[in-house]
Amino acid sequence: MLEVMVENLTKSYGRGLFEREKKIVLKDISFVLKKEKITALVGVNGAGKTTLIKLIMKIIFSDEGKIFYNGLQEAAFKEMSFLPERPYLYMHLKGREFLEFMGKLSFLDDLTIKERSLELAKKLHLEKALENLIKSYSKGMQQRLAIISTFLARPKMVILDEPFSGLDPFGRKIVKDLLREISEKERTTLFFTTHQLSDVEELAQEVLLLDGQKIKFHGGLQDLKKRNKKESIFHVLLEEYEDIEILHHLFSVSSLFSAEGDFNYLFGPFTSLEKDFFLAFLYREKIKIREVREEKKTLEDLLYPEGGERR
């Protein structure tokens, strides 16, 4: 199994005519990609997700810091595979030929390439299109073909940059099923970027949040939810109550409105604990409650409470 350890990585890009002005994209970041786990890399546009992936794949080089592949600085590319975001494949090759090309580059023999291609193509519903030229493929089909090529050599670790882009809902589903299956059966470590947080919730076991050049969070999804105590917010709607002013002094009133001719009072927002305390008070005072509203925090709220640092 392959473990990638990133240590104090810093990367900047030159700006201006002679690139003297440096723009720091990643600053002193460290983390370990856990073996056999599915880790999602999330962050707003320009957070440095693709830069980080390119650094791991040694497509570009860091200013400072080191990356270790199973403890060594020599990249273990034989055991890794990378799917760039929306790659343009060789349009004049057939799907089968493209897979053969990628397989041969990975030193696979003809039989293995054929069997593995067919196995993956069946799972991604592409087996009938393999004899067609890639230029006749739709964007989703091209993306699925690129995904097949990524898993061809049974890599120990796969890095996928926006693997679901260009896919329709059915395509997303079958790709997710494939990723889950490969992670479980072949114990492949998966590291993917996405902007769709539903993908993270459905697929990821670990989340790595990049924001403002740094890692803001790295851990399990459950840890993220536990860490954020204000997971849900509550509002309590009361029927007309004569001593509303007292209540108003004790608790906040977010709005006052009339429904069906009566005055109703909406109290909140409360955390779970605050809500329980408020309800207990209302029960003791025998105040009638019309409704308790719960607004669940989405993963987006948890990950980007202030909207993320945009560049």
């Binding site: 794949m57 497509i59 929306r86 990975s106």
Partner: peptide, 12 residues
Amino acid sequence: AYKTLYMVLQRV
């Protein structure tokens, strides 16, 4: 430009 290079380079 088309990122095909990335798919090839990781394999050679």
